[in-house]
Write a protein that binds this DNA or RNA. Structure first.
Lengths: 164, 164
DNA sequence: CAAAGAATGTCTGTGCGGCAGATTATTTGT
DNA sequence: ACAAATAATCTGCCGCACAGACATTCTTTG
């Protein structure tokens, strides 16, 4: 019998940035889902609650832009979080149209638990990385995310596809 | 009037790993969508075609596990790619149940174009990173993705949530 | 060797979620 | 003062994902 591993072809998973990002993101999402438990909209609700717990609350439009969601989606997202008693819609003193999404005391308490749970989940996900590497990953992702923010505003993702 | 930027609170986007990963992933996805054009299922179809273009074809179940999709989703994904003449279902000689998904010559040609388009899109996304940093990002993500593969198999994402 | 169990691919139905569009109220620009 | 833009909401429709059942084939076990 000849060697069955003699071929120089790749047998494992792909290594593109596209697969790596998607897989890392899915893994993180999976870990996050386990950590947030029965929070109304899972990881999405966590992101909203996290922003609502900030000292300077934002309105739904800003929140939607930040989380990459549609405006209409924010309505029932905040609806459900509000029904759970975690956030509240407080009128913006500077603009009577907009409503600021602010965490209630119960929401802040829940956020405290969530911070620990998600931190533990992330630590488990990054267990193979040293603290310095974790910090480095943050820095690299931050620069990509900063550039990515421009993608949403200008949808010109055109690439030259005239040659092959 | 007092300074409106004197407060020590964060005013920009959040910096958690969760937001960074999601935003970087969304930015990449947006760039990818622009690059793949009218490919049947967008970035998802690209992932499937990319694997189909490998020298060692996989069956739908393996493909689904690799892309993080449900088995039933693979059916119409491959259906549409097959209808577009990009891939074909070839019977597995070792297992008459499974069908290997292999790229057609037209699919390989399309993949050649896609590789250039997506590479250009990724280069634009990573424009702020040096080649060494890009390589480093790949390495870090690879280690996270490798650990993430275990998440799918064992769904035990339990974290201690007894304290606060 | 026979039978039970597991795996692959496919189909059907159901439900949830997202997106477009219209609506109301309010702000901003000219 | 009027027009245009913006924030939030509601309605309705489309699409996709997931559960379940089914036919076929492989594997394990008695």
């Amino acid at each position: 019998m000849a060697e069955d591993t003699a071929a120089p072809v790749r047998t494992g998973p792909p290594q593109d940035l596209s697969w790596l990002l998607a897989t890392a993101f899915r893994a993180h999402l999976s870990a996050l889902r386990g950590a947030v438990g029965d929070l109304p909209h899972g990881a999405r609700g966590y992101g909203a609650l996290r922003e609502a717990a900030e000292p300077t609350p934002r309105n739904q439009a800003e929140l939607a832009k930040l989380l990459g969601l549609d405006r209409t989606v924010m309505v029932y997202l905040v609806d459900d979080l509000e029904a759970a008693g975690l956030v509240e819609r407080v009128p913006d003193p500077n603009d009577r149209r907009s409503k600021l999404i602010r965490a209630t005391p119960a929401g802040l308490a829940r956020m405290c638990e969530l911070r620990q749970a998600t931190a533990a989940a992330e630590a488990e996900l990054l267990a193979d990385l040293s603290p310095a590497e974790t910090e480095l990953l943050h820095t690299l992702l931050r620069r990509i995310a900063a550039r990515g923010a421009r993608y949403d505003q200008a949808h010109e993702c055109q690439v030259d596809e005239n040659q092959c």
